[in-house]
């Protein structure tokens, strides 16, 4: 069969002189056989040296039980099941477990409407739409590494705080968060 044309991203997408060192980071890649091969190529290009690759939740759990992982990149739909329960179980591990707070980037070509809530609530740090590109994966890695998001555990959710912005309490309302009083004081001080 005829093959389609390959378009390579010729331009520098990052426009940055920043460096990234993935040599020491342990990265777990989870996807079907071909997907994990593609991800591995991307991470090898990035300079990764500690890659764990697997195609199922069962294998991923085994790896997580034995190694401290610094980043997980997983497809949302795996060979044996979906990744959402696996990510949720990760966030509910013991507080001292080195992998409880590991950043997770979930990949998905399409999310069925009945799965949107589950996807939102599973505790992943970011979703990336497939098809993937090295540029987008790199952006997300740097974003996850730079993020100062806290992890939150409530009765119904465990994972990174989904509130990206803290604009303080609504106008005219008294803040209820621990940090709100400080914000009020700061803005009062600025006004004075």
């Amino acid at each position: 069969m005829e093959k389609g044309p390959i378009e390579k991203n010729a331009k520098d997408p990052s426009k940055t002189k920043a460096r990234i060192n993935l040599e020491r980071a342990s990265v777990l890649l989870i996807d079907n056989a071909w997907g994990v091969e593609l991800l591995a190529r991307i991470f090898l290009g990035f300079g990764s040296k500690h890659l764990y690759r697997c195609c199922s939740v069962a294998e991923a759990t085994e790896i997580i039980d034995q190694h401290a992982i610094d980043l997980i990149v997983s497809d949302a739909m795996l060979d044996d099941t979906e990744a959402y329960p696996f990510i949720r179980s990760l966030r509910l591990r013991a507080e001292k477990d080195p992998n409880r707070f590991v950043p997770v980037i979930l990949l998905s070509a399409h999310t069925a409407s009945r799965k949107v809530t589950e996807a939102r609530d599973c505790g992943a740090n970011f979703f990336v739409a497939k098809p993937i590109s090295p540029k987008v994966i790199m952006e997300r890695i740097r974003w996850v590494a730079a993020a100062k998001r806290k992890y939150l555990e409530t009765d119904s959710y465990a994972g990174p705080d989904r509130r990206f912005r803290d604009d303080g309490p609504p106008e005219g309302m008294v803040g209820r968060r621990r940090g709100d009083a400080k914000n009020d004081q700061a803005s009062d001080g600025a006004a004075a």
């Binding site: 991203n9 520098d12 997408p13 990052s14 426009k15 940055t16 002189k17 920043a18 460096r19 990234i20 060192n21 993935l22 040599e23 290009g45 990035f46 300079g47 090295p134 540029k135 790199m138 740097r142």
Partner: peptide, 8 residues
């Protein structure tokens, strides 16, 4: 490591 540009 690498420059981000080179890594991509």
């Amino acid at each position: 490591g690498k420059h981000v540009e080179t890594a991509i």
